[in-house]
């Protein structure tokens, strides 16, 4: 499972659309499953499942019909398609909604149906653009479960997300990108360790502390009223800081991808 991270406008969706053979590539080469996206679009798309950022279910049809009509675009024979539709509706827990028009589904149900639709052709590659945006925690966990079980079945999954905990939990490898450029590539833990260390100590900002940190040559960053001190061994360092630097309010926590993300792409608002 591979993740694309980056602020709004970083080029994630564009990259996804190029992988899907929908947007033309403007330079270089891009291969999916060893096939060229410019010349072998149909072959690639027949082996790919797509969960787009925006739910684009067919509002003119019921849940069941949505999947059945979609199966025709892949030339799946009707008997086989009917079998798969039942299986997939069961897989995403929508069997009891099969005769409902899609517009009356909740946000979570729509997302699950889009996921089921992306699986109708048994894809080898699954592309997900912000799969859990706007969903409640229950629905997010259900989607994560499904993605993990797909991964176990050997499906290659590529996703973008703004939920960094999601990427940290699911992805084996990731890139952080901004302005169309890749800033870093690696595993979630590898990236965190490389850029932050394993832990972060948060302390109240005061001039004495900063002076002290400078003397100790510690890695730190000032964010408004608080100071982040990057460390590999939080407990030792915080004890040390308390003694040496007369720290008062401090707390230590494990570093997350969010820390890496903000460090690499800055804290200023996008768009």
């Amino acid at each position: 499972m591979f993740g694309f991270l980056g602020p709004n406008g970083a080029g994630k969706t564009t990259t996804m659309r190029m992988i899907q053979c929908v947007s033309p590539i403007t330079g270089g080469t891009l291969e999916v499953l060893n096939m060229d996206v410019s010349s072998q679009q149909r072959e690639i798309k027949s082996l790919m499942g797509v969960v787009p950022q925006e739910n684009n279910l067919d509002e003119d049809f019921t849940v069941y019909e949505n999947l059945l009509v979609y199966s025709r675009y892949f030339d799946i024979p009707k008997d086989e398609a009917e079998k798969r539709v039942e299986e997939l509706l069961d897989f995403v827990h929508l069997l009891e909604k099969k005769d409902v028009m899609t517009e009356s589904l909740s946000g979570g149900m729509k997302r699950r149906l889009v996921l089921a639709r992306a699986l109708i052709n048994r894809p080898s590659v699954l592309i997900l653009d912000e799969p859990t945006v706007g969903l409640d925690p229950q629905a997010r966990h259900l989607i994560w479960d499904k993605l993990r079980s797909l991964k176990k079945q050997g499906v290659t999954i590529v996703l973008t997300s703004h939920y960094l905990d999601e990427v940290e939990k699911l992805c084996d490898r990731l890139v952080v990108m901004d302005n169309g450029k890749i800033l870093v590539e690696g595993s979630p833990t590898g990236v965190i360790e490389e850029f932050i260390g394993s832990d972060i100590i948060e302390a109240e900002n005061n001039p004495e502390l900063l002076e002290c940190l400078r003397q100790k040559e510690a890695k730190y960053e000032v964010i408004g009223d608080i100071v982040h001190i990057y460390a590999d061994n939080a407990r030792e360092i915080s004890e040390y800081l308390v003694m040496e630097c007369s720290l008062s309010k401090i707390s230590a926590r494990p570093a997350t991808l969010e820390d890496v993300f903000l460090k690499l792409t800055g804290r200023s608002l996008r768009e």
């Binding site: 797509v50 684009n56 003119d60 675009y73 639709r117």
Partner: peptide, 14 residues
């Protein structure tokens, strides 16, 4: 409004 075309071009159709 319905994004029907977007959904279809993710399949082998152009």
């Amino acid at each position: 409004y319905q994004k029907t075309f977007d959904a279809i071009i993710a399949t082998p159709l152009t």
